[in-house]
Computed example of a mutant assay.
Amino acid sequence: MIHQYLFIDFEFTIQEDDRKRRDFFQEFLEVGIVSVLDNEVYETYNSFVKPELNPVLTGRCKDFLEIAQEDVDGGISFDNLSAS
């Protein structure tokens, strides 16, 4: 019997503080996928995603996720991610 698993991880933008702001909307920043076949990593995928509504990452976001502004600036657009 073959055992196959797919692990998916998303990272999202984070606002600077815990106050709820009407002008802040969480967006994808990074997507990672790992395919495991019979307990062995078969394939991996990782990509940064450019946020559109809040393109400049907050300090809290960069610190917590350890993602640099340059990483997302060079990422793919969400439209390209959803079309894949």
Rank of each mutant, 00 (worst) to 15 (best):
F48R: 06
R60Q: 08
L29S: 07
F12C: 10
R22E: 11
F28D: 07
M1A: 03
D18N: 15
L37A: 03
D73G: 10
Y45Q: 09
F24Q: 10
Y42P: 03
E66K: 15
E40P: 01
G59N: 15
S35Q: 13
I33V: 14
I67K: 10
V56S: 12
R19Y: 04
S35R: 12
A83H: 07
G74E: 07
F64D: 14
L81C: 08
H3R: 00
N39K: 04
F12P: 01
V72L: 04
D73R: 12
E52G: 09
T44S: 06
D38F: 06
P51Q: 10
F12V: 14
L53C: 08
D79M: 00
S47G: 03
L53A: 15
G32Q: 00
S47W: 02
D79N: 05
I76C: 09
F24V: 13
D63V: 13
F28V: 15
L6F: 01
D17I: 14
E40M: 07
D18T: 15
T44F: 08
V36S: 06
G59L: 07
C61E: 06
K62A: 14
M1G: 06
K20I: 14
E52C: 09
S47P: 04
G59H: 06
D38C: 05
L29K: 07
F25I: 14
D18H: 08
L65I: 11
Q69G: 09
F12T: 15
L53K: 14
R60S: 09
V34K: 03
Q15D: 15
E16K: 11
F28I: 15
E27W: 00
S84Q: 12
D71W: 07
F64S: 15
L81F: 11
I14D: 03
L65K: 12
D38V: 03
E40N: 13
K20W: 11
E52R: 07
F12G: 05
T13P: 00
P51R: 00
L37V: 12
G59M: 03
A83S: 13
P51F: 04
T13K: 07
S47I: 01
D73I: 14
F7S: 13
D63H: 05
D71A: 05
F7A: 09
R21M: 03
C61W: 01
M1P: 03
Q26C: 02
L65Q: 12
V31T: 09
N46T: 13
Q15Y: 13
P51Y: 05
N80C: 10
F12R: 06
L6K: 01
K62N: 07
